[in-house]
Computed example of a mutant assay.
Amino acid sequence: MIFKMILAPVKTHKTDDVVDAAKAAGATGASIISARGTGMREAKTFFGLTLEDQTDIIMFLLEEHLVSEVLKAIEVAGEFHKPGTGIAFVLPVEHVVGLESQIEKFKEVVRDKYL
């Protein structure tokens, strides 16, 4: 099996929508890391203190055939067409361990989808 990872840094108020949309498109789960980010826009200041928007980095480990559909769902749910809402990108995954209990489920999904 070939796996890919989608990383999607998004604003925290969009996290649940993005995860729900990804699951509806075929993702089986996600890992979420709290973070801070900086972008093209300067951070807002208030009495000399910098106010930074919190960001969640959502990680999805997917079989390769699910990537396009899940990525599109993330884009729509995250409203990436609006500036500053988030991005998503795909990385190759060389090796995976710890999925032994899920391999049969992956095979079932593939059989059901393609046979």
Rank of each mutant, 00 (worst) to 15 (best):
Leu49Ala: 11
Ala30Met: 09
Glu52Gln: 10
Leu51Asn: 07
Asp20Glu: 09
Arg41Gly: 12
Ala25Thr: 07
Thr55Arg: 14
Asp53Lys: 08
Gly48Ser: 02
Gln54Lys: 08
Met40Lys: 12
Ser34Gln: 09
Val19Ala: 00
Gly29Lys: 10
Glu42Lys: 10
Thr28Ser: 15
Thr28Arg: 11
Thr28Gly: 10
Gly37Phe: 00
Thr45Met: 13
Asp20Ala: 13
Ile33Gly: 00
Glu42Ser: 10
Leu49Tyr: 12
Ala22Cys: 08
Ala24His: 13
Asp20Tyr: 06
Arg36Gln: 13
Ser34Glu: 14
Phe47Ser: 08
Val19Ile: 13
Ile33Met: 03
Met40Pro: 10
Glu42Cys: 04
Gln54Phe: 03
Gly37Asn: 00
Asp53Gln: 11
Ala22Thr: 07
Gln54Leu: 10
Thr55Gln: 12
Lys23Ser: 02
Ala22Ser: 12
Gly26Val: 09
Ala21Phe: 02
Ala27Asp: 01
Thr55Phe: 08
Glu52Lys: 09
Glu42Thr: 05
Gly48Ala: 03
Gly29Ala: 11
Ala21Ser: 03
Met40Trp: 13
Phe46Thr: 11
Thr45His: 12
Ser34His: 15
Ala22Tyr: 04
Glu52Gly: 04
Ala21Lys: 00
Ile33Pro: 01
Leu49Thr: 03
Gly29Gln: 09
Lys44Asn: 14
Ile32Ala: 03
Asp53Thr: 07
Arg41Asp: 06
Gly26Ser: 11
Thr28Ala: 14
Glu42Gly: 06
Ser34Lys: 15
Ser31Val: 14
Thr28Ile: 12
Met40Leu: 09
Gly48Trp: 03
Ser31Leu: 15
Ala24Trp: 10
Ile32Cys: 05
Asp53Ala: 04
Arg41Phe: 12
Ala43Val: 12
Gln54His: 11
Leu51Arg: 01
Gly39Phe: 03
Gly29Pro: 11
Ala35Cys: 11
Leu51Ser: 03
Arg41Gln: 14
Thr50Lys: 13
Ile32Gln: 03
Ala35Met: 15
Met40His: 11
Gly26Thr: 06
Gly39Thr: 04
Phe46His: 15
Met40Asp: 15
Ile32Phe: 04
Glu42Asn: 08
Ala25Ser: 06
Arg36Ala: 08
Gly29Asn: 07
Ala21Met: 02
Glu42Pro: 09
Thr45Asn: 13
Gly39Ile: 05
Gly48Gln: 02
Lys44Phe: 13
Ala43Asn: 10
Asp20Gln: 14
Asp20Ser: 11
Ala25Arg: 07
Asp20Pro: 05
Leu51Phe: 06
Leu49Glu: 09
Thr50Cys: 09
Ile32Met: 04
Asp53Cys: 05
Ala25Met: 06
Arg41Ser: 15
Gly37Ser: 01
Asp20Val: 10
Ala27Gly: 01
Leu49Arg: 07
Thr45Lys: 12
Ser34Leu: 15
Thr55Cys: 14
Gly48Glu: 01
Val19His: 01
Gln54Trp: 05
Lys44Trp: 12
Thr45Tyr: 15
Gly37Lys: 00
Arg41Cys: 14
Ala22Ile: 04
Ile32Gly: 01
Gly29Thr: 07
Lys44Thr: 12
Asp56Met: 00
Ala35Glu: 14
Gly37Pro: 00
Ala22Met: 06
Ala30Ser: 12
Lys23Thr: 04
Ala21Asp: 02
Ser31Trp: 15
Ala30Glu: 05
Ala27Thr: 01
Gly29Ser: 08
Ala30Gln: 06
